[in-house]
Each structure stands twice: as structure tokens, then as C-alpha cells.
Design a protein around this nucleic acid. Sequence first.
DNA 1: CAGTATCCAGGGCGATACTG
DNA 2: CAGTATCGCCCTGGATACTG
Lengths: 114, 114
Amino acid sequence: MKYELNACKVEDALSILVGKWKPIILLHLLNNGTQRFNQLRRSMPGITQKMLTKQLRELEAEDIIERVVYPEVPPRVEYSITEYGKSLQPILEAMHDWGVRHTLHKQKLQTQHG
Amino acid sequence: MKYELNACKVEDALSILVGKWKPIILLHLLNNGTQRFNQLRRSMPGITQKMLTKQLRELEAEDIIERVVYPEVPPRVEYSITEYGKSLQPILEAMHDWGVRHTLHKQKLQTQHG
DNA sequence: CAGTATCCAGGGCGATACTG
DNA sequence: CAGTATCGCCCTGGATACTG
């Protein structure tokens, strides 16, 4: 290992990403750029308005995403990743890469045991 | 971005790491090598036997750690990271690096707002 | 030493209804 | 359109006691 990893720091990152819909929200914003509330909602089948609002607010509180309200009728609210939020991308990529290999590993285990 | 990240894969990785004590356990095993049950326990102030057992069993079920029982009296059980478990290290490092920067970022925000 | 078994509190998350 | 408000389930995790 490059150096000793500190558990507290790891958990700081983990606490940001933990939440049933947070990774999905982040990936949608990273992949598709700025999105309106209902645009996000439609792209996440199964999420309720309450949960989407809650998860967005939590990410906003951590300065991971930005929320911009346009004073129009009907209301328009746009969400986007902040520069700081983009710094999470290496973590998401590392997880994605691992997830891809994890699928293969599980298949291998099943072949061995099954 | 290098390519589109898939939410399911990211969550596969996340689901392994989520658990109040799992990152701590993994870092202990990565930093210190094979450890006995009470050795881990002593290095994690606040954890109960039940929780340590539970988290260890879950990591074992995912083939992230290995559990070896020595049929002795008194019993000896040793835990270690598997080769597969070591593949999580890039994720933990990415989280650690981010966590370090997150601390600085929070301090910066507080200076601005406070 | 290395666990189980049991009970219990808090919070995450969902379903549903209502609103500026 | 983009939210709040309320209710309730379940699951994680903690406290405590017991055991091969």
C-alpha cells in the first residue's frame, strides 16, 4: 500500500455516497449535465418525490450538487454537479470498475460451487 | 468522463463497503495483516462482539475476507483479506484521498461562511 | 477465546395526500 | 412543476446475557 489509510477519511467519503438513490443521482448529473427535478424523477423509476427531494437536499448541503431556482410560473428548478462534486468521480469510477469485475467474480464462484 | 458509469455496478461495490464497521475492519486487515477476533475487537473501541461477528460474516460471504478456525483450546480464529478483497483497495484509496480533501474543503467553506 | 441469543431504539425509506 | 406533511414498516445497529 502507498501509505496507511485512515478509516475516518474513508468514512467521510462513504457517508456522502450512502443513500439509496445518491449514486444514481450523481451518475445522472455527471452523464447528462444539468437536470430539472422531474427530469431526474422520470429517469429514476421507483423513486418518490419525497425521497428525491431529501437526497438532493443532502447532496446540496455537502456542496456536491447545486440547486438553482428560476422564479417563473410554473416553477423551474435545475440541479447540477458542482466542481467539488466532480471530485467524487474517481471514487465512482473505481467502484464501477470493481463492480464490473465483481460480476465476473460472482459468476466464477457459482461455476466452482455449482 | 472515460465512459458512462453504470449505477448498478457502482452500487455493487457500495453494498460491500456499507456497514458501520466494514471499512474499519478492511483497513485494519490491509494495514496489519492477519488478525485474531479479539485483536480486531480491541482495535475497534466501541464495537460489540455481535456486530464484529456480523460484519465479519458478511464480508466473508462476499469472499472479501477469509476466516480460518484452528481447532485448539482455547479456540483461535484468524481473519485476513483475500486476494479478491485486496481488489477493493483502489476504492478505499480513492475514498481516503477524497476524505483528506473533503476536510480541507469543509474548513474552507466554514471560513467563507463563518 | 470466540462466539450466540434476545430484546429494543432510531433512522432510512416508502406510500399517500396535500400545496404555492 | 416542484415541492411538504404525515404515517408506518423494516432493518441496522446497540445493550446485555449466556455458551462450547
